[in-house]
């Protein structure tokens, strides 16, 4: 029983970052119907950006947040302008191919810039944990979880309540009508992309205390978050968030009872089973195909 509860706790904490990335992907998808397959690469990149700033300031992971947010926003802006913007509105194949190409490019760019060996961002709290009764909560993961919750809440408030959110939803609904109402759809797309990327990047940075920085570190995070996005019903922020946590729990439970690498397999099996029975994701609708 202890194992079970402890693994659920671990799962929720790990799931927070999945949820954060998944919501980042969803914000982008919701506005421009584009699945960001490059999220894993941005996740990786942010860790390297963190290392870069650290290497001449010596700041710790949490002091680095603003700097990395700004740098990744800048990278997001540039990539949007040169890679995403030209394929918007084209077939979904084109958007898949470009984001995958971008992902591949960024993943190898960090090798060119920082070399192929794994780096570490030293942190005093790497091994610190909080004890609650008989259960332990790793401090870095707990902080990452809390930051993730705050960011997700912030973004969903932004989307649902603010003026910018309204123009986002209007653009998602019908870009032409939105243009007529004076909304600059390009600007909305750019901002949505930047928000999505910065969320992913902060997720990456927050895990530097417990992960080595290497060029493939983002891949499993991308994979799990994409599955969470699909299960959540593609474009549904609440769904993506809940499924991110859920997949975190599933992974953790499978890892606890079998072996660490079985966790991902467990997620995939659950993903397939849910799809077999619940075609439109967990929060589905009536339409059917075929």
């Amino acid at each position: 029983m202890w194992i079970f509860t402890q693994s659920i706790i671990n799962g929720i904490l790990a799931g927070g970052v999945y949820a954060l990335i998944a919501v980042g992907i969803t914000v982008i998808f919701g506005v421009m119907r584009l699945v960001n397959f490059a999220s894993g690469a941005f996740f990786t990149l942010s860790m390297y950006l963190g290392y870069f700033v650290y290497s001449f300031t010596g700041w710790n992971c949490y002091q680095l947040i603003p700097a990395v947010a700004i740098l990744s926003a800048a990278v997001a802006y540039v990539t949007f302008k040169f890679t995403i913007s030209p394929v918007l509105g084209k077939s979904s194949d084109a958007t898949i191919l470009v984001t995958v190409g971008l992902s591949f490019f960024l993943q190898n760019l960090v090798i060119v810039l920082f070399g192929g060996t794994a780096l570490t961002l030293p942190s005093e709290i790497s091994n610190v944990s909080i004890r609650i009764g008989e259960y332990t909560l790793g401090l870095p993961r707990t902080i990452a979880f809390m930051v993730a919750i705050v960011l997700v809440l912030g973004v969903s408030l932004l989307v649902n309540k603010s003026n910018f959110g309204r123009s986002m939803r209007a653009t998602a609904e019908n870009p032409e009508v939105a243009e007529m109402l004076g909304i600059k759809s390009r600007r909305v797309y750019t901002l949505a992309w930047i928000i999505g990327i910065v969320m992913t990047s902060i997720g990456g940075l927050l895990l530097t205390p417990i992960y080595y920085v290497n060029n493939t570190v983002g891949a499993p995070f991308r994979t799990v978050s994409l599955m969470a996005v699909v299960l959540g019903g593609l474009g549904d922020i609440r769904g993506a968030f809940i499924c991110g946590l859920l997949l975190g729990i599933i992974e953790s439970v499978f890892s606890a009872y079998f072996s660490a690498y079985i966790g991902l397999l467990g997620i995939f099996i659950v993903y397939l089973i849910i799809f077999l029975f619940k075609p439109q994701g967990i929060f589905g609708r009536k339409e059917r195909v075929g």
Binding site: V98, V100, G101, L102, F104, F105, N108, I111, N215
Partner: peptide
């Protein structure tokens, strides 16, 4: 290692 691989990504995009 990365330099040549970079080309794939660039060519694709």
């Amino acid at each position: 290692q990365g330099g040549a691989q970079l080309l794939y990504g660039l060519a694709l995009i």
